[in-house]
């Protein structure tokens, strides 16, 4: 079977969720959502998944605050964030480009990022568009910082950045991204050309592994059906 680019991303993210007990997925995240469902399926159900705004995939029932309460208790193992801009220190910007508040480009807003990024141990940054427009040296507005000084209570933070071209892991001590795998069909020089921040190279950069046929069948069947509830347009 031929693996589509989005299926590779879903598989790549799913592998980062191994061993996580509770994964939560926020708004506008169909690819991470599919990845969480794939991991749940591969884990035989030990990974629990909550997809916000979903009926079938909703495991919480105490209103808008419940997810955040669980995160504050340390009971959400993984979450996904993105950014209109993401910089080399893993700062994310969900607000806009230019001077605040009258940006010349304005996005939706920071949503839960300014809390979840601090408290969820494994935050996976996901941005399919990998260009100098999205991956910048320094964000124009910090919705949530990638790292914090030692006196700040921060059990959580960025774990990896998955893009349409490659995977970076985040080194929290150095506050720098490390390129660890390149998706099939992409090259290191192309990644450098399209990345606005400096990053380190892993000793052994691999080609991002493709899912096998059984995994693809699972993705195109039951997972696609489940993700259609919160994300009907994506499933189509």
């Amino acid at each position: 079977m031929n693996c589509k680019p989005q299926e590779l991303l879903i598989f790549t993210i799913a592998r980062m969720l191994e061993g996580i007990e509770h994964v939560a997925v926020g708004v506008s995240s169909p690819i991470p959502g599919s990845a969480a469902l794939l991991q749940r399926s591969l884990s035989g159900g030990t990974t629990q998944v909550t997809v916000l705004n979903s009926r079938n995939l909703q495991t919480l029932n105490d209103g808008a605050g419940e997810l955040f309460d669980r995160a504050a208790q340390g009971r959400i193992g993984a979450f996904f964030l993105s950014g209109g801009q993401i910089d080399g220190k893993a700062n994310i910007n969900l607000v806009g480009i230019g001077d605040y508040p009258r940006h010349h480009v304005r996005w939706s807003g920071s949503f839960g990022s300014a809390m979840l990024y601090y408290l969820v141990p494994r935050v996976i940054l996901f941005r399919e568009e990998h260009t100098r427009r999205t991956l910048v040296d320094q964000v124009d507005f910090i919705s949530a910082p990638g790292t914090s000084p030692p006196e700040i209570y921060r059990p959580g933070g960025p774990y990896a950045l998955v893009t349409g071209r490659c995977v970076f892991m985040f080194d929290r001590a150095k506050a720098r991204f490390v390129l660890t795998s390149i998706h099939p069909g992409h090259r290191l020089d192309e990644i450098r050309e399209n990345t606005g921040f400096a990053f380190d190279l892993a000793n052994n950069i691999i080609e991002t592994p493709l899912p096998d046929d059984a995994t693809l069948t699972l993705l195109r069947g039951p997972i696609a059906q489940e993700i259609a509830d919160p994300y009907p347009a994506f499933a189509q």
């Binding site: 209103g63 808008a64 605050g65 955040f68 504050a72 607000v95 806009g96 508040p101 009258r102 940006h103 010349h104 304005r106 807003g109 920071s110 949503f111 839960g112 990022s113 300014a114 809390m115 919705s143 949530a144």
Partner: peptide, 22 residues
């Protein structure tokens, strides 16, 4: 919303979800 923010025709108080709930 985007237009009004850019034009400065509304006062914006950006926040994060759990802060509003709290």
């Amino acid at each position: 919303f985007v237009e009004a923010v850019k034009a400065g025709s509304i006062t914006l108080r950006d926040s994060t979800c759990p802060a509003l709930v709290s």
